[in-house]
């Protein structure tokens, strides 16, 4: 079971702390990564994989973005984001030396400790690979504690594949199976074409001893769970990361509610069994 509260909840959770951009990297057409360091006099932000920060662009706005870096090296705070509105558009313009306000970390974490001793299946769709990456880092850093480790990743087109170099390294260096597929191929693409759920039947794993972590658009996660269930993985062992409108990130503004769950505080990582009924009701 995922714990509800991070190690050390921020003392003044409504005040952004200044972080400075160390590197700004474009990833694809609409996705970019910012590597941040805490400004002078401020502590690095220790976090657990799956948590998110509220990122503030001075005078523009604030958005919730999952942390996508390595929890073992919190001195570099990494966020990979898609441009979806005014604030993320402004974030993309940031350069080395620019400042960003950071509030966090908030939310629940991927159950990487609880998964020790089992097979771990990561199923990522689109930008969903970014919130899963910290969990991958964590699992790979203690590789001997896990059984089979598999990453299934679906991207829109080959040009939208994130962390390409890392994917190749993971496949090459570690005892980690990596399967990538795209919804739409280009002329040159020689890999899989089709939905990421189609990769699931191809991977041998023990459904009774597997923890599945999935992140991506809600429709994709629903179908992923269906496919995993077909393989015999119980919904209690599948964990999803949900998104809702967030303003305060501390469970007090009411915006992120899904049923009685505050996604910012009881999530964003949930065991699927806990939210299954809620996701089934339209416009809940």
């Amino acid at each position: 079971m995922t714990a509800a509260v991070p190690h050390a909840p921020p003392a003044a959770p409504m005040t952004p702390h200044p972080f400075v951009v160390q590197r700004a990297l474009p990833e694809t057409d609409d996705t970019f990564t910012l590597e941040l360091a805490a400004d002078r006099g401020f502590e690095p932000l220790a976090f657990r994989p799956g948590q998110f920060n509220m990122l503030y662009v001075f005078g523009v706005g604030e958005v919730p973005i999952s942390i996508s870096g390595d929890p073992a090296t919190p001195q570099t705070l990494v966020h990979t984001t898609r441009v979806v509105g005014a604030t993320t558009r402004a974030m993309r313009q940031l350069k080395r030396g620019d400042q960003l306000g950071v509030r966090g970390p908030f939310g629940t974490a991927w159950p990487v400790e609880e998964a020790e001793g089992q097979d771990v299946l990561f199923v990522a769709g689109g930008i969903g690979l970014a919130p899963l990456r910290p969990a991958l880092y964590r699992v790979l850093s203690r590789r001997e504690r896990y059984g089979r480790v598999v990453l299934l990743y679906g991207a829109r087109t080959p040009d939208d594949i994130l962390f390409r170099r890392e994917l190749r390294n993971w496949r090459a260096d570690f005892d980690l199976e990596v399967h990538v597929t795209v919804d739409r191929a280009t002329r040159e693409w020689r890999g899989n074409v089709g939905v990421v759920t189609a990769l699931i039947p191809r991977v041998p794993f023990d459904p009774r001893n597997t923890v599945a972590l999935t992140c991506g658009p809600e429709v994709m996660m629903r179908f992923t769970v269906l496919e995993l269930q077909r393989r015999g993985v119980e919904p209690e062992h599948v964990h999803v990361s949900l998104e809702r409108n967030m303003k305060c990130a501390i469970g007090l503004c009411g915006h992120c509610q899904l049923g009685a769950e505050f996604v910012c505080r009881d999530g964003p990582v949930f065991p699927y069994a806990r939210v299954r009924r809620l996701l089934d009701v339209r416009e809940l």
Binding site: D30, V84, G125, G126, I127, G154, A155, R156, D160, D183, R184, G194, V195, T197, A198, G216, P217, V219, M220, F223
Partner: peptide, 16 residues
């Protein structure tokens, strides 16, 4: 058909 429909939904696109 189910898989194709999911591809059609273009879930990872800008306005899914």
């Amino acid at each position: 058909l189910s898989a194709t429909r999911l591809q059609l939904l273009d879930l990872y696109g800008q306005t899914p």
